[in-house]
Each structure stands twice: as structure tokens, then as C-alpha cells.
């Protein structure tokens, strides 16, 4: 591990000021000399592996703004401070009552120890676990732009079938983000150019030709809060995660589903898919296909077909298309049958 400078800024403006002094506008947050750290469950790993190489770490855990650590429930929705830990949000009574899909997505992620360390903002910014990205001896366009992608023709069982490009098919592994994108969440950020709000769906970038550019954030920008609008019918929502073992594994396929039902007819559906895409993935076509329809196994299957119509399989991950569809069908039917 390379030596690095470690600082604990006192407040958001101090953190931004230090970050902007040691980064430029062109720097990607994941490649900048100065990087923010909160729970450290992802970044510290990647520093040990030589994948992330910041020479200055700005620890956000001492920031004095109390809102960063609070979950606030209002008539407008719910607002998560960026430093709230995953475990805390997963156990929050109002989160569980109003947005089961959020609580489930957090509860089914990682392990108890990691959930107690990892911050919510850090969680949504977690980087891919692609085996070829994680180890520096492989070619990887995300880690070293232009170096090639060893996963494309390699062991790509974990890799994405949606949102990939010729340069990168690394999966976005997060769970919480699927709930957030389904519920039209908004991310609040502060940087040297001021404060702004970013619709969650605009936060992550598909790899395209530039897989090293992962988000819309500047290197000196800090996420301060995640706001989820009030969606009263989101009580009928869940997160279904399918994986190789019962716990502590990334999704092979997952579905975040919220349903507004009139009897068995769908007024509105929200659907996001995890484990199968390069970024948090809202399945708009699937949502539309259900609108106004009676939700049963047939309509759920049609929605699943719509969700994966553009899927691009590789040698070892073709099963994810079938699995992803079945996961969505099961999630839709289970959500329909919830007592909400």
C-alpha cells in the first residue's frame, strides 16, 4: 500500500476546499489525488489492492453538520443524511413501514459488520467488483483507460447483460441504488461550484467509450443527502435478491419493485434491476407494459421480456437474462400479494 496523507476536515466547506485544492475540474473522483472516504468498506479494499491510488484521503466522518447523520421523515418524503450507516437505515421503523423496498435492499446487502460501517452515500458510489477490475495485472478499461477489457472474452459470469459497451461490461453491484432509482430519488451534493441536486437516474454513467467515468460528480463534490419523494403506495414494494448463497453475496439478479394497484390492475409500477446492468437500472419499458393491465403471471412475463429486450449476453452470463426475467416475475407477483 502506498503512503498517503490523511485528513479529517471539520465541515463540508473545509472538505470541499481541501479537495478542490488537490484536484482539478478534469479529475474523475475515482482517479483524483485527493479522495473522500466515509465507511471505507470499498475504497480501503481497493487501496490495498492497488486499484485506487489516492495520495490524500479526506475522512468525512468528523464533518460537523448534524444533518449528515440524520434520517428525516416529512410529508415530502424521506431524507437520508449521507453519513447514515446502511444498518441504521435498514432498521429505521419508518423506512421499513413506508418503503419496504429500501429497507430490504439495505438488509440484503453485505454483512452486518459492513452495514454498520458503510455510509449510504458511499454505498451508492461503490465501484464494481469485476474480478478483472479488482486485480491490477489484468487489462481493464475502467482502471487503465484504453488498456482493453479482459472480462469481455474471459470469465464473465458476474457481468452485465444490460448497459454494457465494447469497452466495459462490469456490473454495478449495489442494491440500495435500485430502490432509489425506482423511487425517483434525488441526490444533494456540494462542491466548489456550489450546491446542486442530481436526479438519481443521472448520477451514474453507462460505460460507453469512457468506463473510467463512473458518475456525474466532480472530484471535489460531496454527496450530502439522498432524498426520496413521498410515494404513499410504496408500502407495496419489495426488493428480491437472487444469489449463489443465502447471504453475503452480490446479486446474480435482483429486482426492486413498487406497485400502485387498483384491485389487481396496475395504476403505476416502478421497477429497477440489479446484478444485471452496468449502472443502477430503471426498467421503463417493463413499467409501461404493465400500466393499466391486470398483474398476473402472463403480464409479469411480458414485462420481464420488455425489461430484457435489449440484453446482450456474453459467454458465461447468458443465464442472467432468463434469471433476471424470472426474478422480476417473482418480485412482481410477490409485491402484488403483499398485505400493504
Amino acid at each position: 500500500m502506498r503512503p498517503f496523507v490523511y485528513e479529517q476536515p471539520a465541515d463540508i466547506s473545509a472538505a470541499v476546499a481541501i479537495a478542490s485544492r488537490f484536484t482539478t475540474n478534469d479529475d474523475q473522483p475515482t482517479r483524483a489525488n485527493a479522495q473522500f472516504i466515509a465507511g471505507g468498506t470499498n475504497l480501503a479494499d481497493y487501496m490495498k489492492l492497488g486499484v485506487a491510488e489516492p495520495n490524500r484521503l479526506l475522512d468525512l466522518n468528523r464533518l460537523k453538520e448534524s444533518g449528515l447523520r440524520q434520517i428525516r421523515v416529512t410529508d415530502d418524503g424521506i431524507r437520508f443524511g449521507a453519513l447514515v450507516r446502511m444498518g441504521e437505515a435498514a432498521d429505521h421503523a419508518e423506512v421499513k413501514r413506508r418503503y419496504p423496498v429500501i429497507a430490504d435492499s439495505l438488509r440484503l446487502a453485505a454483512s452486518g459488520q459492513i452495514r454498520n460501517m458503510a455510509s449510504l452515500a458511499g454505498n451508492i458510489l461503490q465501484r464494481t467488483r469485476c474480478e478483472y477490475f479488482r486485480e491490477t495485472s489484468w487489462q481493464c478499461n475502467k482502471r487503465v483507460p484504453g488498456s482493453g477489457c479482459a472480462a469481455m472474452e474471459g470469465f464473465n459470469r458476474q457481468h452485465a447483460v444490460l448497459g454494457g459497451s465494447d469497452a466495459c461490461i462490469a456490473t454495478y453491484h449495489g442494491d440500495f441504488a435500485q430502490a432509489l432509482i425506482a423511487l425517483d430519488a434525488v441526490v444533494h451534493a456540494e462542491g466548489s461550484r456550489g450546491a446542486r441536486s442530481i436526479p438519481f437516474a443521472k448520477l451514474h454513467r453507462q460505460p460507453g467509450d469512457t468506463p473510467h467515468i463512473e458518475t456525474d460528480l466532480a472530484a471535489d463534490e460531496i454527496i450530502t443527502a439522498i432524498a426520496v419523494p413521498a410515494v404513499p403506495w410504496a408500502r407495496r414494494s419489495l426488493y428480491l435478491k437472487i444469489r449463489d448463497r443465502e447471504s453475503y453475496a452480490f446479486a446474480l439478479a435482483s429486482a426492486a419493485v413498487a406497485l400502485d394497484l387498483d384491485g389487481e390492475t396496475v395504476r403505476e409500477a416502478r421497477i429497477a434491476l440489479g446484478g444485471v446492468a452496468t449502472v443502477p437500472w430503471r426498467a421503463g419499458a417493463a413499467e409501461q407494459s404493465l400500466q393499466g393491465k391486470k398483474l398476473d403471471e402472463t403480464s409479469a412475463e411480458a414485462a420481464a421480456d420488455a425489461a430484457f429486450a435489449q440484453a446482450q449476453p456474453r459467454q458465461h452470463n447468458a443465464f442472467k437474462i432468463e434469471l433476471g426475467k424470472r426474478t422480476l416475475v417473482r418480485a412482481l407477483l410477490e409485491t402484488r400479494d403483499m398485505k400493504a
Partner: peptide, 12 residues
């Protein structure tokens, strides 16, 4: 590594 080389966890 133990992220990708899976062995049973308690829940299994």
C-alpha cells in the same frame, strides 16, 4: 479471494 470464491455462510 473470498468475495468471489464462495463458501457457505451461517445463513446457508
Amino acid at each position: 479471494d473470498l468475495q468471489d470464491y464462495l463458501v457457505p455462510v451461517n445463513a446457508d
